[in-house]
Design a protein around this nucleic acid. Sequence first.
DNA 1: TAGCATGATTATAC
DNA 2: GTATAATCATGCTA
Length: 422
Amino acid sequence: MDDQTRMMTGLTGLGGLAQADVGDPDSVRKQQSLGQPQQDIGDILQQIMAITDESLDEAQARKHALNCHRMKPALFSVLCEIKEKTVLSIRGVQEEDPPDPQIMRLDNMLLAEGVSGPEKGGGSAAAAAAAAAAGGSPTDSSIEHSDYRAKLAQIRQIYHSELEKYEQACSEFTNHVMNLLREQSRTRPISPKEIERMVAIIHRKFSSIQMQLKQSTCEAVMILRSRFLDARRKRRNFNKQATEVLNEYFYSHLSNPYPSEEAKEELAKKCGITVSQVSNWFGNKRIRYKKNIGKFQEEANLYAVKTAVDAANVSAQASQANSPATPNSGSPGSYSLSHTGDAYLSLRSLNGDGLNIAPSLQPQVDTLHRATHLTGGYEELSGSGLYTPHCLDANSWQDTTNPPSVTSPPGPPGSVHSDTSN
DNA sequence: TAGCATGATTATAC
DNA sequence: GTATAATCATGCTA
């Protein structure tokens, strides 16, 4: 017969003891003088009280003696009944908690993000959306995607490992408490209902810990997502060299600043940025240049000089090699930052009247003049055209809303413009 | 810290 | 699908 059954059996053996009398210490004292049974009950109670003051061995021995006491079942059953009617009747109202809506929310969220539940496309889909929102090229997206997935998997792993730990701890603790209560139920009245309630309390406590874990996991996922979704928050300026390369291309192709895919790829490689960043850069540059040509004039002059100096140097080398100067001598399929037609268009203005050359640019212009004069290229380069906003306005891309034909001036035949490939 | 510069995103037109 | 124009959000600098 197990403890619980014994306890329940004890309830049926109330005998001649009045419930109220047992529960009241005064009644116990009164009953001590009333006869043998009352005397026995008093003894038992005193022994129980004395156990706390004794050593473990003595207490164990005393406990055993009490368990064997002939009046023990009666006393036990009375105590059980009293307890049943008082404590449980008061607390029983709080049982059957409804599911916590916050936990449900967290559960749903973790499920949607692919953290809890079976591993499926939830997280991957979120990653894909995040990568797409970040506007990267397919390659960039896949890199970001895998990065996101790796981090999400890490979160998932930590979550499950922690959850497992909590569940194990909860289970162990529950078992421990249940064993303890069962053991104690030999000497004090503990009903099965009370044990159940205690288990529920333990579960509630562990559930609150689990909620904290879920909350932390949700926060981690949200931070991870925001890191991918809000890519622009992580904006970093391109380095100086990258900007220079892009500007060189832009100003040397001012009449048609729409790099082909190949050109974009090469620019991206040179600058250490993505193709879509190159596209963004040209999109921004075109619109900002067009909006405020005056402001960009000095910059345009600077790059024109730079380009022309390069061109002149190449001419010089070509002359020295006793071969015809061929400015556009780039390999097929590749653009040449230094030797394109627009560079010459720009350069012509350097020799023109009325051009405002910034003092900072004058040394470069002088150098250019010397170089071109020495090589004989200056005759070719110097013309009547001015590198002025007016001159630039003649370029079709600035006069029309739509870009010019989808061909790239320096690019190979069949090359296609595709700017802003977000 | 305000103002400007700049990379990225979004809405719209074609 | 691509370009433009507007806008946002952040970086940089005086």
